[in-house]
Nucleic acid binder design. Structure first.
Lengths: 226, 226
DNA sequence: GATGATGTACGAACTAGATAGTACAGTCAA
DNA sequence: TTGACTGTACTATCTAGTTCGTACATCATC
């Protein structure tokens, strides 16, 4: 896939049709991703997706086989995009505390900016991860966040400012939980507590709290009152 | 509702049918709750629900109007049950640290035991909380967890062991995030990291971490390395 | 206390419309 | 001419919701 027909990316050939399979696929996938993220697998409508693309329903089946095939690709695409974004984070050279702070802030903001991804993950979890299970592509996308947090943590321990014995995957789990929840459960939480958890100042507070929680958690000195 | 026809709760009249509206409603709601939690609003099938009840599809419409009406009642029921369970928590008399520990442990376990509730909340968030918005019943169920954490926190501050300036709703938010995520995202997280986050020992570790995070967060002495 | 009217609780069968998926006939470039 | 690509017009099936009707109980009336 994505083998891009080199040499002939002619922008507008002759007078008639310009075959552009990759473009067609991309257009369909883009629309489909939005629809699935919005309505779920069973809630999304193939006809609706087709209507929003520049192509006919026939093309969806031609390129993606069936509805589930399309969903799977949308899921993969969501993961791919977000992992790509994660790779942008640069914390090399930063001391452990600053690095962890930056990692958490970045994760918080990144999740916030990728609501559709969060929704896809929620939907996939509703399906007990049965589609993710089918996707080698997703499992092959290694989670860069783990490498990052792993390295930060090791450095912190080595420098004697983080306590030893913690599990990087669990640290990542904690950061994920706090950042994910902020997007995934905002609707119900805001309604029940009558407060807009999506308001900028509120988000800043939550982000600050999240950073602080992680820093305090890894800190060497145990601050918890006996 | 639930006005129970006093005096005449005849257990088994004549020889034929025993009309039992409340029983019928309960049976339908029970089955429907499971189906919605499992498949979502659009994924659940009225015919399937009807088939699993002891009644015909006609009864669903007779008692609940339409599919959305049934979903709304299932949502309300899920919240009601969980709030009822929360009320069991007794932390009166415990000192702040022990009380907070217990509250967090309780929340963690309670969420774990009510996966269907978690799933309903996820589903409702996928729908942007539009059904919860329609439900006065749910908003009227006050969240006891907030009262609890509020009181614990105040006592801790008064006793000089918790730092002041924190927001009880935000504390509740943090506890919720960590406990909710553990159930909601277990499928995808386990698959991606090739580790069973539902295994007993793993759960114990996560629970312990969660308690520790909260205790360190509210602790008076700032342990975060500058 | 028999008789008929009325209301509640329920079921079987049906319908209209939605929805995933397909058959077929093309078009266009190589 | 071949083969990749694309649109139009379909179909089979599924699905929410309805129509019509029944069984039983209660109540008013004779």
């Amino acid at each position: 896939m994505t083998v891009a027909k080199d040499e002939k990316s002619r922008p507008e050939a002759g007078g008639g049709r310009v075959p552009d399979p990759e473009g067609t696929r991309r257009n369909i996938l883009e629309i489909a991703s939005r629809e699935f993220a919005l309505n779920g697998l069973s809630g999304a409508r193939i006809d609706e997706i087709a209507a929003r693309t520049r192509f006919s329903k026939r093309m969806i089946y031609y390129y993606f086989g069936d509805k589930e095939g399309l969903y799977l690709r949308a899921l993969e695409e969501a993961y791919r995009q977000v992992r790509e974004g994660e790779a942008q984070l640069d914390i090399e050279g930063l001391p452990p505390v600053a690095a962890l702070t930056r990692l958490v802030e970045f994760t918080f903001e990144h999740h916030h900016q990728h609501e559709d991804f969060i929704r896809m993950v929620m939907i996939e979890n509703i399906h007990h991860g049965q589609y993710l299970k089918q996707s080698d592509a997703i499992r092959d996308l290694n989670v860069t966040a783990i490498d990052h947090i792993s390295r930060i943590y090791s450095r912190g321990v080595a420098e004697g400012i983080f306590r030893p014995g913690l599990d990087p995957v669990e640290l990542h789990w904690q950061v994920s939980a706090l950042c994910f929840f902020n997007v995934s459960n905002r609707a119900t939480f805001s309604m029940i507590f009558g407060r807009d958890f999506g308001a900028p100042e509120q988000l800043e507070r939550l982000k600050k709290n999240t950073v602080e929680m992680m820093l305090r958690f890894v800190a060497k000195d145990d601050p918890s009152p006996a």
